[in-house]
């Protein structure tokens, strides 16, 4: 038992007493703090001390919850006798039972927390991947055909399908972005004409693929990549 350590525990307990409703606090908080100081002073050894800390703080939390229920009129346990009402009585009984089995309570709360967390994560994924429409106009009219590679003539022939309004093609691979600073490895996609307008996308800077200069090899950087590189456009890009 060391001086500074005891005062830290006592101060923490005194601070935790603010959890109690004001009436209870005014009446008993000082006495409770004094009792804790005595209890702490006579507890020696790290194991015993941590056990006392866990027990005392856990009990305070439960008692504070029950006292607040009393104050709010849900239960009437200190005013004497059997004046408790239906569900308030059940709630108090549940709290008391749980407080008598802290290990069980801790495990249960932990498991519930893990379960809720896992379900939330799963739902978030399913929602974004399966449920929500894609963030493009008329996204229910978009289909994706992935079949390894389509040859040029096949792609041309597909343009004549009556049931499809427009086809665009893309090929994805790696590239290095060089220029200022270290070379940056990026994903690049080579896309056919009409790709961006099909998705209703507009560039933040510059122009879209222009028919007048089909051989120019226009380059587009995604917004995030653009911000990573200080100069906006004009970097050269070499295919790997």
């Amino acid at each position: 038992m060391t001086g500074p350590r005891s005062s830290v525990a006592a101060r923490a307990y005194a601070a935790a007493l603010w959890l109690l409703p004001p009436g209870v606090r005014k009446q008993d908080a000082q006495e409770m703090a004094l009792a804790f100081v005595d209890l702490w002073a006579e507890t020696t050894g790290v194991v015993a001390q941590s056990r006392v800390l866990a027990r005392v703080f856990f009990a305070l939390a439960v008692v504070a919850a029950v006292e607040w229920l009393d104050v709010m009129g849900v239960t009437k346990s200190t005013s004497g006798g059997n004046g408790m009402m239906g569900w308030g009585r059940n709630l108090r009984f549940a709290l008391r039972t749980l407080s008598k089995a802290p290990a069980f309570t801790f495990t249960t709360v932990l498991l519930i927390a893990l379960g809720v967390g896992a379900v939330t994560t799963m739902f978030t994924l399913v929602d974004h991947i399966l449920l929500r429409p894609l963030p493009y106009p008329d996204s229910d009219r978009l289909v994706s055909v992935e079949n390894g590679s389509h040859s040029g003539p096949l792609f041309q022939a597909m343009q004549d399908f009556n049931s499809v309004e427009a086809w665009v093609g893309s090929r994805v691979d790696d590239a290095r972005l060089v220029g200022e600073g270290d070379p940056l490895r990026i994903d690049q996609a080579v896309v056919s004409r009409g790709f961006f307008s099909l998705f209703g996308a507009r560039p933040a800077l510059g122009r879209l693929l222009v028919v007048a200069c089909p051989q120019m090899g226009n380059h587009f950087l995604c917004y995030r990549l653009m911000h990573r590189r200080s100069k906006k456009l004009g970097h050269s890009k070499e295919p790997r």
Binding site: A33, R55, V63, A64
Partner: peptide, 18 residues
């Protein structure tokens, strides 16, 4: 029976009230 300050004073309040 292990007592802690919070539960003890809760019981004492009830007993005083009674």
């Amino acid at each position: 029976v292990l007592l802690d300050p919070a539960n003890l004073y809760r019981v004492l309040r009830r007993m005083s009230g009674l």
